[in-house]
Design a protein around this nucleic acid. Sequence first.
DNA 1: TATGAATGAGCCTTCATTCAT
DNA 2: TATGAATGAAGGCTCATTCAT
Lengths: 195, 195, 195, 195
Amino acid sequence: MTKGEETRQFIIEKAAPIFNVKGIAATAMSDIMEATKLSKGSMYVHFENKEVLACAAVDHNMKLLGNKLQSAISKAKTAKGEILAFIDFFNNPLNPPVTGGCPLLNFGTEADDTNPIVKEKVNGGIKFTQQIVENSINKGITNGEFKPDWNASEFAVIVFAMLEGGNLIARTSGNNDKMNIIIKTLKAIIEENSI
Amino acid sequence: MTKGEETRQFIIEKAAPIFNVKGIAATAMSDIMEATKLSKGSMYVHFENKEVLACAAVDHNMKLLGNKLQSAISKAKTAKGEILAFIDFFNNPLNPPVTGGCPLLNFGTEADDTNPIVKEKVNGGIKFTQQIVENSINKGITNGEFKPDWNASEFAVIVFAMLEGGNLIARTSGNNDKMNIIIKTLKAIIEENSI
Amino acid sequence: MTKGEETRQFIIEKAAPIFNVKGIAATAMSDIMEATKLSKGSMYVHFENKEVLACAAVDHNMKLLGNKLQSAISKAKTAKGEILAFIDFFNNPLNPPVTGGCPLLNFGTEADDTNPIVKEKVNGGIKFTQQIVENSINKGITNGEFKPDWNASEFAVIVFAMLEGGNLIARTSGNNDKMNIIIKTLKAIIEENSI
Amino acid sequence: MTKGEETRQFIIEKAAPIFNVKGIAATAMSDIMEATKLSKGSMYVHFENKEVLACAAVDHNMKLLGNKLQSAISKAKTAKGEILAFIDFFNNPLNPPVTGGCPLLNFGTEADDTNPIVKEKVNGGIKFTQQIVENSINKGITNGEFKPDWNASEFAVIVFAMLEGGNLIARTSGNNDKMNIIIKTLKAIIEENSI
DNA sequence: TATGAATGAGCCTTCATTCAT
DNA sequence: TATGAATGAAGGCTCATTCAT
């Protein structure tokens, strides 16, 4: 990694949580300057404009989420363990794995009507995340952990939607009780489909 | 209603969809000026500052959502009909009942880390919305439509979370397929608990 | 006095101290509105514009100063008593007879380079004030209280200049010690010229 | 001096007379823009806000006054010559050494009730100016020019107060006659205390 | 006479971006 | 590559003033 690439990466790492907390529109280049202690001109050496930096920050946040998620799942010994790890990973939006909360939710709602590029990035992230669940279920079906007629792709949608919806409830209420109901419900479904 | 109140209301009605589409941070007072064809000074006759106008717009969007939702539900003859109407109300985020999509999702994710006032407003809106479902279930239990052991408050959480999660998926993907899975799933749960 | 004249007078009385404290440029019509609890339009019924109101406020402040000053002097039995009363009147700029301090000093320094009308008003006020001292000295000379060769007009200038200069020192330092030196000095001169 | 410091200094030098002539409240950032031919944004590169620029302008005006005053005094050969130079320095407020007139008088009266920071700056300037007179008198007493019982600090107050008061009279009347009386009086006192 | 809604110029400030060094 | 000075458009907001009621 050249010096330039290193600086670029450094800026992204500092910028990513700021964008995720404040949102793209509310984040100023000067916020990034302050966080990086770099000069104004330096930002523009590495990023053509704010839009490009914001996209890089979105990518970084999503990749961070994905990496941490896969790391959490990889510790599981069974397919069922994987799915439970997935759920646990999202179980406390008040103390989220990525600073600012789920980037899919944050950037998705900000971008859906106004920023097609970010919107498409988030779309990819959502598909990717659901695929993780789907893969685990299929694995569990194959190895006899789950009932063979469990619809993997549909449950992946259900899990993702409920966790993101729970995220919204928890973060606006500042309370995790409703999230716990959601998790309980999801775990019940998993048990129903376990053998 | 005095002239002033009329103008104030007029501004709110023009401003509300703009805030809901662009977000609070990305909406400029000049956007509202353009939409209302009123002068800059006139905005400040009726609203102390942008924050106050934004709050009024959030309130308006949530009230609009609530009114339309209750209107849709009120046409139902049975408790089950009410819950189905509730779900149908949210069934197409790509053509949403409130311009810009669900204000609870939009303002909730924008405000959670940065705007305690809006955050609390959204929190109230979410509770209110869940209560509607809870009430219908309890009504249905009372009048013998639903099984008596159905947990009303828990299902209200599930419904709300799944619909908001589905909303996110549909709007970022531009496709309603996943939302239809969610609705199908919710309807199945309702059937399970119907007598 | 008609209702209109009464309101006009009321506005002036509320506005005068504000202009004297904040200065003309820094006083907004809305400050006057707030102080009078009158409507914006009402101000403009009675005063063509801010400039006219400011002038009326300057006049009022100067007249108030003049009236209080003459009232203080009128209690004196002798010419010497009058001059001493004059000096005492100005002796504590930290607790001045007119709210905001001496309007001649305040408006004179604000207006000298920028507002010929106010400047001329202040000029008149200064002449008037000095005349009071001059008259008392001449009276004292005539009635044998003061030495006949005391230059009345020159001492009037000295008294006024020293008191205004002392005013500046006292108000910027928040301390009256230097003012007391000035007063001691002036009283010594009076004694020297007394018979 | 770096480019930035140069520009900062350039802005101060252009801004200082404007603030001294119009006053702080009546001076707009756009006035400084016009005088410097710099862009609006450039002002804010060098000054956090108008208040900071105004303070720098106050400092500059006072320092300019101090420097010119000391330069005038330094030409004197004797202590008496110094005090006469001091008085001469202030002798024509209609054509003042600092554009806009004495900054101590201008900013002191504007700030006394509204701007503690500027007020304190002016307070320091006043003390400094009086100290110059006091020092010269003490020097003259030591070297036998002045009577040993002349109260240096008290005369310093008298001189300063009379000159500032004379300043007010001269500038509001547009006429220097009264100032000449003051100067004549001050010179007489100096003669009285000379050996 | 009194009101307060409406105006638009102008205020201070921030922003994303450019460019000479 | 890195800096930070410079830019000017745009942001939120205030102001003096007008006008219909």
